[in-house]
Amino acid sequence: MIRDVTLGRFLEGDGVLYKLDPRTKLMGLLLYIVSLFVFKTWLGFTLTLVFFLVLRKLSKISFRYMLKGLKPVFFIILFATILNVILGQSDWTKTLFTLWRMIGAVFASNLLTLTTRPREISDGLEKGLSFLSIIHFPVHELATIISLAFRFIPILTEEAGRVIDAQKSRGSKIGEGKIVDKAKSIMPIIIPLFISAFRRSDELALAMDSRLYGSGKRSVWKKMEYSKIDIYGYMVSVLMLALMIIDRCVL
């Protein structure tokens, strides 16, 4: 159930995607998502789909693992699609394209988090966005917060699983009945989780203080270095976007 959610989790592996620099992957993801929203024809659809399939292959992460982990997200997407149809989107090609745009974006983001450690993502963001610090934007702080949030995702989902089990043992009917009942049945889970999350963050803050976080100029232990394959990474991403722009404007 909730423990299966893979969104935001890192999975140990040795595919090519693991070897790319986090900055390349972040930029690649950004360009890919833009590409997804730019394409207009069946050709673009096919190309973005194939591109994703190739990336998946390069990550060596099983398709089933990804699907299983994204189940809850799919329900939301499905819901959005149905709304789309109800609200008079009669052209089914367009509906399909919209569906793919959402799914593709989720899939690609999932590929990034599965193959990149949270710390690498935050370091990548920090480096990539460092120009913003000129206008006193707290880039480093933002990156740290993101990386910590990722770190606590597995811990909190584990905990959510425990609380759900415990309340079930007290006969709690989670997610049953009318909408009002459903909403009510979530309270026994949400409240303990919130309390725990607050306690955790309090202790985390004290622990970080004790380890001298923010007491002076920080250094970074692991250097990020571009390698040869990053050049290919950037080239392919840019090419993809260029093709999709052609797809939209020319075809």
Partner: peptide, 27 residues
């Protein structure tokens, strides 16, 4: 200082990254 729940004190994604956190803060 070390606290009760070890999970709440770990900031790194790997054992070595977490250990490096303090020295990084020292610059």
């Amino acid at each position: 200082l070390l606290f009760q729940n070890p999970d709440n004190q770990i900031v790194g994604d790997t054992v070595e990254d977490d250990t490096a956190f303090g020295p990084e803060n020292l610059g």
